[in-house]
Design a protein around this nucleic acid. Structure first.
Lengths: 212, 212, 212, 212
DNA sequence: CATGAATGAGAATTCATTCAT
DNA sequence: TATGAATGAATTCTCATTCAT
């Protein structure tokens, strides 16, 4: 039985494990059905606990969504930080970052679904102070890379790191988050091939733009 | 009273007007709250009719969402067709199309919210046959523009119209659909200025990529 | 198209035909789904007219049910009267009446479904004065038959015509009205054979009881 | 207040008691108004709980009806089994069974109302496998009684137990389930006397038929 | 820390009935 | 006589949340 299995995996009365299981279950549920459509019942089932636990640990559905969002922001920011762009040559750094951005959302489409949901709700579950703090490192790293690239004559000199970041995110995230409508509209190649093409296109577009 | 106002505006017992009012009201409601979060009650109020009318004309909430989606696809496609890219010089055509794409979603953010919602639901409200048929003209026009531009030595020769379309859509749509999380993350300039910058960035990126 | 067909069959603006079509449609609908479950919409569809006509001719759903009930009582009483039991020898008369009762409900199961529905509603759609008046002839005929049979030593002398009528109705109607639960409970022979057996059993039981 | 009374009677948070209360309430409500006409709200009120409990325990109105039906089948079968027909002399056994059948539905008219409703819906709430299994014992007992009676020269030899069972059910159940229309049609004696007469008639008819 | 029974407000959907034409 | 648009009150069912144990 699934509940028993979950229970066995983490042992009874293990607060931290229960919290984590709920967070995981909620991410999956909210990504699949949105905030309005996600069910507390379903989250409890997926987490192998009962509904009261969710209220015990998180207080409310909205608060749970906030926690999920923040948790998943922390995860991607940590992964970005691990890229260590500063130690790479400018062109390698840009390529690495674009590829990472593309690969991360391809591997974690739930992350963008959560972002979209949050935007539908006008960003009311996100704490700007915290979000901004989380984000600054990567923009800083990108700024350094662009400056070095411009200095070496590899990149155009007028590229803004923040704008570039948004452009990279757009090109990498949009085709994943909108894959169903795009598939309906276009006669797209089967999954793997379509991703390979989009990944290459992302790199081409960014480098095409950055050429001096 | 708002119901009275709506009634007066279109007069009673005009089936086509009622249908249209519901479609409009539903677009606003679904864009604001999603499919799961949108309320039939609220749609009826906004449309100045009663819930039963919605079921009379559309059958169910899901079917209403499908109708809204299709209707709004038709609208943007019609606007695109009105651009008449074929009669413009290649560079003008590309600029016109990018600017149009950006301006359309800026003016109609609800359209992308509907798209996001539809993607959350794995595209189950869209009829691929119909969607594909709606979309083909613009891809054809873009292919012509790219071919002419390459011939005249203005554009790189290897650009694929479908990939370019997706890239343009990504760059234009993503910042609008994700404006709330982006605002939370970045210290963005106030609305107008931020849009102006993104619009320019979209043009720069596309032209940067297309130069031979 | 079915509405067009119905329309053509009876021509437009033929009050009597419309009334009759509604009555027929309502019988079928109420028999199939009961009074609570029967839908005015469905009746209008079946009758090839619109709902407002039903209200025009019958005033309300309950009143329509009453009219259906009365109409179908009139039909069976008329058929019974046509048997002319008085001109038959006692045993032939009884056999004829039992067979008729059995065959009528077999051919018109909707009639008993209406009766059951009416009983569920405690008989509130039936006018006792009218019902009683409709029924007396057959009881009178049966009384005559029993008297003649007893006189001739064919039948027991203590049989009461009213009780016998109810017993015959019970044996003939119940297996038809309860055919679905009986089928679920028993491994009954396929339709035709099961009816043949029940028909014979009805005759056997009544004659078994009546023998002196 | 009635809810308080119910609450007090069974105490809160007793799942089994709540289930039973709902089953009881539903039997009354469905018998009174049918499946289509019975109201979930009314059942919750009668049971002294809220609507959500009904869905929690039974899932849907139809499933609740199925459960009620099955429960009431179990009850009558258990009562029949308690008759222990095998230990009685053939004539006593038949009389006991006829009287039991008559008395049971007289005391529990709701049971036949449920049966009628189920037949209106073409038996779709009944599981034939289960129903058949429930029913077999009584037919077996009746077969034994008929065999013994025929052996002892008390009964005709050609009586089929299944047919006889249906005939007994017909004679005993029909006048109860159709009491309202029968009352409208006939000038029946007041309740008690009418029942006494029908009970005697049932016995007379069955024994009349069974005499060799 | 954990359970599962219970709740009440609200959600979508239905339907008998009326009304303007 | 006939139509079909419109209504509002119900009705089934759902779900976030609380509570007793």
């Amino acid at each position: 039985m699934r509940i028993e299995a979950a229970r066995r995996r983490r042992g009874p009365r293990d607060a931290e494990a229960t919290r984590a299981a709920i967070l995981d279950a909620a991410r999956a549920e909210f990504a699949e059905s949105g905030l309005g459509g996600g069910r507390i019942d379903a989250i409890a089932d997926r987490a192998g606990c009962n509904k009261a636990m969710i209220y015990h640990y998180f207080g409310s559905k909205d608060a749970l969504f906030s926690a999920v969002l923040e948790h998943n922001y922390v995860l991607i920011r940590a992964a970005e930080a691990g890229l260590n762009l500063a130690r790479l040559a400018p062109e390698d750094a840009v390529r690495t970052f674009v590829e990472f951005s593309f690969d991360y959302v391809t591997a974690n489409p739930e992350f963008i679904q959560l972002l979209n949901e949050e935007n539908l709700h006008r960003g009311r579950h996100i704490d700007p102070d915290h979000a901004r703090q989380l984000n600054s490192p990567v923009i800083g790293a990108l700024a350094g890379v662009l400056a070095r690239g411009a200095e070496q004559g590899l990149f155009r000199a007028d590229a803004d790191p923040q704008q570039l970041y948004i452009t990279i995110a757009s090109i990498c995230y949009f085709p994943v988050s909108n894959r169903y409508t795009l598939s309906a509209i276009f006669d797209l190649p089967r999954d793997g091939e379509m991703l390979r093409q989009r990944r290459q296109q992302a790199i081409d577009v960014i480098f095409g733009y950055l050429r001096p």
